[in-house]
């Protein structure tokens, strides 16, 4: 990589690593160790393709898509474990939350109970604010499939979280 490009990449990676990590934490349902690994993997992939990524309209969105696909590939690789509801929270070791701890646990726990692809749809739509079409592209699937998953996931989250969101979401 040319020195100029290398600087550009480093600036990009430093600026995006935090957000990618937060996205990864939500994608993994709070598995912070896996999240850390996914972010490193994502930045590694972006590094290799930086020549092209840096010319993309939105390198940040590109990196987010790489993260999504890296996560889904990880899930595929471990797919024999199936998409399952976690009876207990995944490993959330690491520095303590800086936000509202009770909220995070409740919401992240609920996310963790969704099948991986449903969770991915939710994170892309409501955390990344992506449209159904953009979500479908990132996940290599159809808009119809995203819509179905989204409706199903929201219904499930609603039943899991119910009115607790009202209680927690207002500071």
């Amino acid at each position: 990589m040319r020195p100029g490009r290398s600087d550009e990449y480093q600036e990009f990676a430093a600026a995006r690593a935090g957000h990618l990590y937060r996205s990864a934490c939500l994608l993994t349902g709070g598995d912070t160790h896996l999240a850390e690994d996914l972010v490193q993997e994502t930045l590694g992939k972006v590094y290799v393709r930086w020549g092209r990524v840096s010319r993309a309209d939105n390198p940040a969105a590109y990196a987010q898509t790489v993260l999504t696909r890296t996560y889904l590939a990880h899930q595929r690789r471990h797919s024999s474990r199936k998409e399952h509801s976690t009876a207990s929270l995944p490993d959330t070791a690491g520095p303590g939350p800086t936000g509202d701890a009770p909220l995070r646990l409740t919401l992240v726990e609920a996310l963790g109970r969704l099948p991986a692809k449903d969770r991915t749809v939710v994170v892309l739509r409501y955390w990344e604010d992506r449209s159904i079409e953009q979500t479908a592209v990132a996940m290599n699937t159809s808009s119809a499939a995203v819509r179905t998953r989204c409706v199903r996931a929201l219904a499930r989250l609603r039943s899991l979280l119910g009115d607790s969101l009202v209680e927690y979401a207002r500071p």
């Binding site: 990449y9 480093q10 990676a13 430093a14 995006r16 690593a17 935090g18 990590y21 937060r22 996205s23 934490c25 939500l26 912070t32 999240a35 850390e36 972010v39 490193q40 993997e41 994502t42 930045l43 590694g44 992939k45 972006v46 590094y47 290799v48 690491g94 520095p95 939350p97 800086t98 936000g99 509202d100 701890a101 909220l103 995070r104 919401l107 992240v108 939710v122 994170v123 409501y126 955390w127 979280l161 969101l165 927690y168 979401a169």
Partner: peptide, 24 residues
Amino acid sequence: ALHQAGSGFEPPRQDLAARGEARG
């Protein structure tokens, strides 16, 4: 609520970006 919850996750290490580059 999702934005609040997501924002609560702080990267566990400062060198996450550098580690990503090293991996790349």
